[in-house]
Design a protein around this nucleic acid. Sequence first.
DNA 1: TAAGCGTGGAC
DNA 2: TGTCCAAGCTT
Length: 367
Amino acid sequence: MRRKGAEEKPEASAILTPLVSWFEAHRRVLPWRALDLDQPHPDPYAVLVSELMLQQTQVVTVVPYFERWMLALPTVRALAEAPEQQIHKLWEGLGYYRRARFLQAAARSIHEQGWPADLEGLLALPGLGPYTAAAIASIAFQWPEPALDGNAFRVLARLLGIETDPKDRGNELRTWLRPALTAHGPSRMTQALMELGATHCSKRAQCDSCPLETDCRSRAAGTVDHIPLVAPRAKVRSVEITLIAIQTAGQYLVNIPAPDGLLAGLWSWALREEIQPQDLKAAEAARGYRAVEIKRWKGWTQVYSHRREQVTPLLLEVEEPFPPTENQCWVSAQELRALPMGRRDQRLRDLVLQSGEDSHAEAAEKE
DNA sequence: TAAGCGTGGAC
DNA sequence: TGTCCAAGCTT
């Protein structure tokens, strides 16, 4: 009896040959990408950094972060020895901030024990899952380990006409793909698949200029737009929050980073959930200080992966600093600027500091 | 196993 | 002012 699927597939190295020549003709220049894809990468650390940054993040977003990171922390050792505040500042705005800490933990492991000698060793590094470990194996070290990201799954599902969720067939697809890595070069083959998925074979496919068009089963069957099958997503919870900057005499009250949870490792403003701005004064008075509202800006919607916030930003002033709670402290404007914050809190920081500059300018004009 | 974890691009 | 998704991983 034939097992459905596996035996019916064409040989990978043959069917993917046009993809390789297309890639060599059209491949993008990326700051982490080696020129010679036949050799091990001259800087495996650059591959490690890029792959962590690229998790769930588009190339165009990563490029400037990668450039800054490599200038500031050009080696495994530099990263291993860097203060946590620095790595979060370099990561500020990129999202999924756990990745920055995982990256440093991985660098510390490599600094102490050297690079792993096999895929299993890479997989044991913090922050490296099946995709990232295989990507580093193939791109940095030329080991024939197929790296299947969303792009590769989409390309292969369409090429082979897989109408179920291709992520459920990862082992089978990796086994099928491995000979193509050996034949065409692990680094080249891995990057060619992802590059096609990111450019031509994206969600809205551009089949006319695809090097695999003639062999693509979903193209022949007219099912390109229905493949890959995607699992339904979880609902996003909506909350209303008031985001509060409290200032006095050039000092600002901020929350010290939490060790886990949303925006872990980042600084933030005081925040009241489900409290309407008009009720805020009473709420603040109950905490033992009297605040004067200086400014209230137009709100916005802050979207996270699993949470949606209606943000009302507010600037309050107190007459003198009061003792902060355990997880808060007062900082100067200069210190404030240096703190790593998520986008929501960056946004209020920009408003507050701009407001401060404006009032100074007004004061200067009146003199 | 399913939920938690950010942000911005493309439409 | 919405939806879908991106070079996914951890717990």
